[in-house]
Simulated scan of single mutants.
Amino acid sequence: MMMMKKVCTFALVLVGMLVVEVIPKADSVTCNVVEFNPCLGAITSSSPPSTACCRKIREQRPCLCGYLQNPTLRLYVNSPGARRVVSSCGIPFPSC
């Protein structure tokens, strides 16, 4: 189980680095899924998100629909852990 979390975390970071240029900018925000690195621990475990994590989610909020529309990122952004973290930060999950 722990190995699977590490593989998922690595995959998320790798995919983020690969799609940096694929996601367009939204509202003067550079959409980069790697910005969610402070959230990885909270997404892959039951720990609460940090202040830095919630700040990054707020900053990247204009990008969430783009991430959800990307077939490569959708699985990660729409995962139960990611949904829980977004909710814990008090941010409504987008309905795109």
Rank of each mutant, 00 (worst) to 15 (best):
T9S: 13
F93N: 04
M3D: 15
R84H: 01
L75P: 08
C53Q: 02
E21M: 09
M3N: 12
S28E: 13
M2F: 14
R74C: 06
L64C: 04
E35F: 05
V7T: 04
C65I: 08
I23D: 03
K56P: 00
S87C: 05
P71Y: 15
P92K: 05
C96E: 06
P71I: 11
Y76N: 01
L73H: 02
V13G: 08
S47N: 04
V29A: 04
L12P: 00
L75D: 00
I91R: 03
C31N: 07
T44H: 15
V20H: 15
P24S: 14
F36S: 07
M17E: 13
M4W: 05
S47P: 00
G66N: 11
A26Q: 15
F36K: 02
V29F: 08
L73N: 00
S87L: 02
M1C: 13
I91D: 02
K5D: 12
C63A: 06
A26R: 15
C96H: 06
S47F: 04
V22M: 10
S47D: 05
V86M: 09
S47Q: 06
M4S: 09
R84L: 02
Y76C: 13
G16P: 06
P80F: 04
R55N: 12
K6I: 10
R58A: 13
I23P: 01
P80Q: 11
V29I: 14
V33D: 01
V86G: 00
S95M: 15
L68C: 03
L14T: 12
V19N: 08
F10R: 12
P49M: 03
A52H: 08
C96D: 05
N70A: 08
V85Y: 04
K6N: 09
V15G: 05
P62V: 09
Y76Q: 03
K25Q: 13
Q60K: 03
V13D: 10
S79R: 13
V7D: 01
